[in-house]
């Protein structure tokens, strides 16, 4: 009985993702048949083989580790700064009127342009990349938290206050939980943004990391390795996103609109 349901599940995923398999198949055939030179478009199977070769005999794990270290430090700092700042913006008019013009001024600016300046200040090692990731991912987190905390119903805060709840407890028991869905939304955007930015910054100036792997392979025309690098970062993006979504579903079980998450 159980075996049957597993095979059914496999069948279902296959049909759901049939276009992906179709494209991978066409890709393989075109590349193998030589219509497009395999250097330009290496066959999928060769990319998979190269992936395992780089994983076990190459430095794929090292490069991935470097990228992940930078990304998670940057994203972590952005969350640590962005969430309190967003809540403070919603609670205190002074903070809000100070931050709002900076945010609306900074939001439309392509932050990657700041990267050279960060290199001038912090050098080409970890620091400049972490700073860029921090700047890029902190914007969506602040904005989302601010918007969420702004719409916490005043009635709820009042009723908590009238029951004698202390200021600090109101923050932890009323404001923060009600803002949580929005914080998660901002974090999700920041997650993808930080992955993209770490890869780009490593391609532009770095001696390690997945972006560097892509760049160094492109210089010597190892095209399969290029696909391994870009595939790895995209896979990690999907993986983190999925893990995050399931964590969010657990964390928001109590929420009245839980079905939405």
């Amino acid at each position: 009985m159980k075996k049957k349901s597993i095979s059914l599940a496999i069948k279902k995923t296959f049909f759901q993702y049939y276009s992906v398999f179709l494209i991978l198949f066409v890709w393989e055939v075109i590349s193998r048949s030589g219509v497009i030179h395999p250097v330009l478009l290496p066959p999928v199977s060769k990319i998979v083989v190269r992936f395992f070769e780089l994983l076990f005999f190459g430095k794929l794990l090292y490069h991935t580790g470097q990228s992940m270290f930078r990304m998670w430090i940057g994203l972590g700092l952005a969350t640590l700064v962005g969430v309190p700042l967003g809540i403070m913006m919603a609670r205190f008019v002074v903070v809000r009127s100070f931050m709002e013009p900076l945010l609306s001024l900074g939001f439309p600016i392509p932050k990657i342009g700041i990267y050279p300046v960060l290199i001038i200040f912090f050098g080409v090692l970890h620091f400049s990349k972490i700073a860029l990731i921090f700047i890029e991912s902190t914007f969506p987190i602040i904005m989302a938290t601010f918007n969420g905390a702004l719409f916490v119903e005043q009635k709820l805060i009042w009723s908590a206050e009238s029951m004698g709840t202390k200021k600090q407890k109101i923050l932890w028991k009323v404001i923060l939980p009600l803002t949580l869905p929005h914080i998660f939304m901002g974090f999700r955007v920041g997650l993808i943004v930080s992955l993209i930015v770490v890869f780009l910054s490593e391609m532009i100036a770095s001696a390690e990391g997945l972006g560097h792997l892509m760049m160094s392979s492109s210089r010597v025309f190892r095209s399969a390795d290029m696909f391994v690098a870009i595939g790895m970062i995209s896979f990690l993006g999907l993986l983190f996103d999925r893990i995050f979504l399931s964590l969010r579903r657990k964390a928001l079980k109590w929420h009245p609109e839980a079905a939405l998450y």
Partner: peptide, 12 residues
């Protein structure tokens, strides 16, 4: 393809 860094595709 949503999480693929698009600008990074320029070498390819």
């Amino acid at each position: 393809t949503y999480p693929v860094p698009k600008a990074a595709m320029i070498p390819i």
